[in-house]
Structures are given as structure tokens and as C-alpha cells.
Computed example of a mutant assay.
Amino acid sequence: MYQFSYAEVAQESSASAREREREAFDHMLASLERAQAAGTRSREATEAIYATRNLWSILVEDLANPENALPEDLRASLISIGLWVMREAEAIRLGRVDSFDAMIEVTTMIRDGLEA
């Protein structure tokens, strides 16, 4: 039977969690790009807004948890970004913003940061 140190298991768990997060951002980014191509009043836009709000709601809740292992200042910054993205999604839904470009740019930066 194999034996692994706690550090090895923790590192692997962290790496797989990071990979799942990156995949979720990839999915959200693809959804936002489809919405951008179809227009802000399209079914794709509705789906992208819904998926984006759901993912960021989950992330913000996790980031706000005191047991989250990320540094507090990074957690606060990510929460701020998440809240902005959710406000931007709502502005698009309400017709106040007519482009997904800013959300795509921010999502891409966050996703790319997960690869580092």
C-alpha cells in the first residue's frame, strides 16, 4: 500500500481544486463569449448572466469564509471583483450596459491567474 505525506495530499488536493476552478472559469468565459457574439438580448446572454452570477456567488461565499486559506487581502480583492462582475451582469440584464467585453477581460485575467 502506498503512503503519502499530508503535505503531498494537501498539495495535490489544492492543485485539483485549482484545476476545477480554472475549468469553471473556462466554462464561464466560453459562455460570455457566446453571449457577446449573440448580443445582450439573446438566450445566450441570459444563460451567461445566470452562470456568471451563480459561479461568483459560490466563490464570494467561499472567499468570505474565515476558514478559507487564502490571504485576507487577496480574499477581499477577489470578493470585490466578484461583486463587480455580478453588478456588471445585472447591468447588462437591465440594458444599462451593452457589451460583455469588460466581464470577459476580467474573467480571463482571473482564469489566467489560476494557471500561475
Rank of each mutant, 00 (worst) to 15 (best):
T46F: 09
Q3W: 14
R22P: 00
A64L: 10
R93D: 10
S77I: 03
N54Y: 07
N65D: 14
S77V: 04
D98Q: 13
A102I: 05
A38K: 04
E8P: 06
S13F: 12
V60A: 01
I92W: 12
V106Y: 04
A102G: 03
H27Q: 05
A15L: 10
R93L: 13
A15S: 06
L29N: 04
E105N: 15
E21D: 07
I58E: 02
A24H: 00
M1H: 15
E105V: 11
S5C: 11
R75S: 07
A69D: 04
D73C: 00
M86H: 02
P71W: 00
S80M: 14
Q11D: 11
G95N: 12
Y50F: 12
A45C: 12
F4K: 15
A7F: 12
S14A: 11
S13Y: 11
E33K: 13
G95F: 09
I110D: 02
V97R: 15
A35N: 09
A45Q: 14
A35H: 03
G39C: 05
A64E: 14
E23R: 01
S5I: 11
S42V: 06
R43Q: 13
E33A: 10
L32Q: 11
F4I: 07
Q36H: 12
A10H: 14
A45N: 12
L29H: 03
M28Y: 01
R111S: 11
I104A: 07
T107M: 06
A116E: 11
R41E: 12
E47R: 14
T107G: 15
R18T: 03
I49S: 06
Y2C: 12
E12W: 09
S77G: 13
L94Y: 09
V106F: 04
D112K: 08
A69E: 09
L78V: 02
E72H: 00
L114V: 08
V85L: 11
A35M: 10
S5N: 15
T52G: 09
V60H: 00
R96K: 15
E33N: 05
T52A: 08
R87E: 13
G113E: 04
G113P: 01
A91P: 09
R93I: 08
A7C: 04
M1L: 15
N54S: 10
A30T: 05
D26K: 02
E8H: 11
S42I: 03
A45V: 07
S42R: 07
E88P: 03
L70K: 01
